[in-house]
Simulated assay, not measured.
Amino acid sequence: MPFLTGELVAFFIFALLIIGGAIFMISFTKVVHMVVSLAFTFLSLGGLYVLLEAEFVAFVQILIYAGAISILMIFGIMLTKHTDEERQAPRIAHESITALGCLALFGMLFYAIQNADLTPNGVLNPGEDNTREIGLLLFTERVIPFELVSVLLTVAFIGAIALARREEEE
């Protein structure tokens, strides 16, 4: 079967890992398990970016999302109080509806992909080093939006610290 290539197999494996991690994330009841499955989804998404030859985006995905955000969420969970007062009954109906919805979504996506016109409209000429190209674009043509985003994130960080201190004093 000439259609079955290594890239296609890797794509389906990463896609199944991403979907599985996302389903586990919404299915688990313990928050720590949710964060671990979310980190698993982020790592699998980084692998998918590597397949797309977007190494910089894959590196940022793994470094920022799988690393920093997941660790931040785990620290947030560890530093807050949790009680086991909320015992939930079996969610068989909820899980059945979720599975049915997933199958319906898979069917619609499969139908849309099979009927899509995937002929290339032009020639894609990616740079030899896409990290260098992103850096050049970011620091030449897009330097003002980049700096505005950094100022916005700094202001949001300072505001979060101010709100946390105000709540702590009360």
Rank of each mutant, 00 (worst) to 15 (best):
A99I: 08
I92N: 09
L52R: 11
G101I: 06
G101Y: 02
A160D: 05
G122K: 10
G159V: 09
E53F: 11
Y111P: 05
S150N: 13
V143D: 10
T140R: 03
E141N: 04
L148E: 13
V155Y: 04
P126W: 03
S150I: 12
I26A: 08
C102D: 01
F24C: 13
I144D: 07
N130P: 14
F28W: 02
L8H: 12
A116P: 07
E85I: 14
V60K: 06
L63E: 05
F14C: 00
G159P: 01
L152D: 05
R166C: 05
F139M: 13
M1A: 11
I18C: 03
A116F: 13
H82R: 14
G6W: 11
V143T: 09
L52Y: 14
M73P: 05
P145G: 07
D117Y: 00
E169I: 13
I77N: 03
V36L: 05
P90M: 03
H82A: 07
A112D: 03
E128P: 06
T5Q: 02
S27H: 05
T80L: 12
E85P: 01
K30F: 11
F14A: 00
R87Y: 06
L137C: 06
L48Y: 08
Q61E: 09
L138T: 15
Q114H: 08
L17S: 04
N125F: 07
P145R: 04
Y65V: 00
